[in-house]
Amino acid sequence: MIGKRQLLASAAGLLLAAAVAGTAAAQTFPAGPIKIIVPRAPGGGSDNITRMLAPALEKKLGTPIIIENRPDATAVLGAELVAKSKPDGYTLYLSDNSFYQNPAVLDSLPYDTVKDFTAVTMLAQGPVLLIVHPSVPAKTLGELIQLAKKSKLTFAHGGIGASTHLVGIMLNLKAGIEVTHVPFKSSGPALNALLGNHVTMQFGGINSSKPLVEQGKVRAIAVTGDRRDPSMPEVPTFQESGVTGADVMSVWGLHAPAGTPIAVRRTIRDAVEAVMRDPEMTAKLAERGYHVLANTPEEHQAQTAAIVTQWLEVGRKVNLKE
């Protein structure tokens, strides 16, 4: 039988241990495994970047990184889970376009995108590429817009509210054309439909389209972003082609629950930056269509608010839900 004193002693010991662990955690974060909630299924763009970074991050931080997929089409479930987690830096959220656009696209959210989260870093951005089937006579964006004014064209995209969909909406808006959108569950099947000439054009990522462009199976028209993409320098930007304000980038960020200490967020961000700036990793990421950003928590905090506001404004002008 365990004596009362013994019990007390062990209880005190436990308390002491907990206290020591507590201070140690504050000084040397991380003291345990870090969980990254990915709101998408394995194999998607958001999952891929996380899985590419995880092994190197584990080494850098000296702690296991657990990737937990909580897939749903609007990426709300995972975000809600993180918003409700302890703000200690051990639960992080891999935010993609839906996270920033949801306030403008969905009627209600179980959390506040700006207030319930605090930013860690914007990991990377990726341009969206406009490609057409080779049988389409238009060779430039200008010609394509002229064609769209004369005939009925269609564009395929990777899902309602995805960056590939929103670029199309913005192009319609800015160029004054009405190209019918044809939604697919993801960009893969959308690309398939373009290859089979079932749609006129498609908005998608660079990495999957590049080999097909090189083979002449599809033709690249324009790319979003301030400057041309280094992996496809021959493709002009939308701005060069005469359409401004249609640029939507695919984005991937890291967020923590609101109240996560800045010291902890800095530690994570610094590790992320070191890992992503490794030349070999940067090259691998670029090949996959991720352009490394890894900005500071403060920068990303302001950026998050700006992107959310930007989409709310667009949402007032066009119906983003259809």
Binding site: G43, G44, G188, L191, N192, L195, P211, L212, K284, E287
Partner: peptide, 30 residues
């Protein structure tokens, strides 16, 4: 379709493509 076009026919093939890309091979006709 995964090997000849680089287009995944299901989520598992998408993971395979991810694995190839990590090794610096972009699946596609080439």
């Amino acid at each position: 379709p995964m090997l000849t076009l680089g287009i995944p026919s299901n989520a598992l093939m998408a993971l395979m493509i991810g694995a190839l890309v990590m090794h610096g091979i972009q699946p596609g006709p080439q």
